[in-house]
């Protein structure tokens, strides 16, 4: 203990403290993010059967204000007849619905309904008219995607998705306050549902546009680049040259100013 208190004023103590701090935060983060992704995995493997009757009640209480009592739509919200269970699972399952306020686009926020309630709502909306169903496990199982198929998924992503979602899936701006969100941390099921239902300002990519197999490849590609991290170090938000330029003008030039002041303040 005495040795420790003697060394705490050493110039290296700061670095030691920094390293310990980084390791602790990094470790805690790894544990926390690991448990989150595990929780998500549990979520997708569970199959919950929804009840149309309960869904109808939930709908009347939470959604009818904008979507109309019979989901026929109103000035404030579109008709939900024929949007399918997949649309409900995506919008409610990512917290986008119920909407917090009217705006150019509903952002994702903490989920308001539990799995059973979401399934009930989905079952109710699906009962109104035929639409895309929630994908089964086999449809979104990406474990069998080969390397060539994964690379093909990347090409499909760059040609069809990157113009809004950014080449690194980091998100991007659309007109008048609308935006394409980042795809980091979005589950396979939700990515699939977004493609088949075209939520918010996104276009629909149906099975004749991008086949089921190709959708699986795109999801596999996204999951692969998410898992691989950034090979070159801190990704700076994957936002391209803007964040790089900002970095060199703040950290880079800042560091240079610090060193020039240090060097010129030392007299011979």
């Amino acid at each position: 203990m005495k040795a420790l208190s003697q060394r705490r004023r050493s110039p290296l103590a700061v670095f030691a403290l920094l390293v310990i701090g980084l390791l602790v935060t990094g470790g805690l983060y790894a544990v926390a993010s690991g448990s989150v992704s595990k929780a998500q995995a549990d979520e997708t493997t569970q199959t919950v059967n929804g009840s149309v009757e309960n869904g109808s009640k939930l709908f009347a209480a939470n959604c009818a204000t904008c979507h109309g009592l019979a989901a026929e739509g109103s000035d404030s919200g579109p008709s939900l007849v024929g949007v399918g269970a997949a649309a409900v699972d995506f919008q409610v399952g990512t917290g986008r619905m119920p909407m917090q306020m009217q705006g150019p686009q509903a952002p994702s926020k903490p989920v308001q309904f539990d799995e059973q309630q979401t399934a009930d709502l989905a079952a109710y909306v699906a009962s109104l008219g035929a639409g895309p169903a929630i994908p089964d496990e086999e449809t979104i199982d990406i474990s069998g995607v080969s390397d060539e198929e994964l690379a093909n998924g990347g090409t499909i992503f760059r040609v069809n998705c990157a113009m809004c979602h950014n080449a690194a899936a980091a998100g991007g701006a659309l007109t008048r306050g609308k935006f394409a969100p980042s795809l980091a941390g979005v589950s396979e099921q939700h990515i699939y549902e977004a493609m088949v239902t075209g939520p918010q300002n996104m276009p629909v990519f149906n099975d004749s546009n991008i086949t089921r197999e190709q959708k699986k490849q795109v999801i596999a590609y996204l999951k692969h680049i998410e898992a691989q991290g950034s090979p070159g170090g801190q990704a700076l938000g994957s936002l391209g040259p803007v964040s790089e330029g900002l970095f060199i003008w703040t950290a880079g030039i800042g560091l240079m100013v610090a060193f020039t002041i240090w060097i010129t303040s030392r007299h011979a």
Binding site: T155, R158, V159, N166, A170, E244
Partner: peptide, 17 residues
């Protein structure tokens, strides 16, 4: 970014500062 192909343009396309 992938190989160059005249058809796609990714969001967040900017030149160096």
């Amino acid at each position: 970014y992938g190989p160059y192909d005249p058809s796609p343009v990714s969001a967040g396309t900017q030149p160096d500062w």
